[in-house]
Design a protein around this nucleic acid. Sequence first.
DNA 1: TTGTAAATGCAAGTCACTTGCATTTAATCA
DNA 2: TGATTAAATGCAAGTGACTTGCATTTACAA
Lengths: 129, 129
Amino acid sequence: MENEANKIIKQAGLKITPGRVAILGYLINTENPVSAEAIFKQLDRKFDLVTIYRNLASFAEKGIVFQEAIDRSDRYYYAKAEHHHIVCRSCHTVACVPCTHVLKKVNNFTKVTHQFILRGLCAKCSAKQ
Amino acid sequence: MENEANKIIKQAGLKITPGRVAILGYLINTENPVSAEAIFKQLDRKFDLVTIYRNLASFAEKGIVFQEAIDRSDRYYYAKAEHHHIVCRSCHTVACVPCTHVLKKVNNFTKVTHQFILRGLCAKCSAKQ
DNA sequence: TTGTAAATGCAAGTCACTTGCATTTAATCA
DNA sequence: TGATTAAATGCAAGTGACTTGCATTTACAA
């Protein structure tokens, strides 16, 4: 999907660079949310971690990717909006839960977005205990 | 509510110390979730920040208080279970949203807990923009 | 092609915790 | 009530995930 990445980056008004195409291409093809560090390793450390962080930040700013503080030790990034996550308390696997709710106004707050994180024990870890 | 704090600490099988009573007493009386740093300042730096962190960790382990990674720059602690948070994207005010849902099993995960964070612009910040 | 603003990489910095260790203290028991 | 001891505390130092500064390189418009 590097073609698609290319197009999205251009549409966002950002320069097309090898790093950006690789990062976004990887996120588009990945179901689960991933950390900057994971992307760095996945791309064989070909781009500096700083470059990964900076590009993820500009993608997030443009609304191309989404960012969540699923736990405190890492931020997670993903390319598809409106889905949520369930995290295994034991092995830290992150799986996705689809969501079609759109909220607009809550408690007099406007422009409301929501983040829903479930935590539990995945089937494998449930079995172990 | 230092009396109540006392009782809860004892019931949890923890030693009653001035720091613990002060921290838990403060959390019990506080509606919004707060950070360790905020508690530290609120208690006039009378106890070391390390002490605050360690006690919050043992309270959380005992299930006396709850911990959330609302954003990445701070963890937040609060004393009342089963309610959720709405955060102002502009001034970072955190308000509470009641919740009565209890989930037990989702996607083959067991022992599921949930965290629901809404982000938006509070009435004040909505007006400003 | 060339000029320039933006992107990159390296090194160093920041910030919210976390750990090590010597000292102090709550709480049990003689 | 005082001695005992495991646990709690405070200070200093460490860790890890970013973040920033700055010199170099590069995308892309002219």
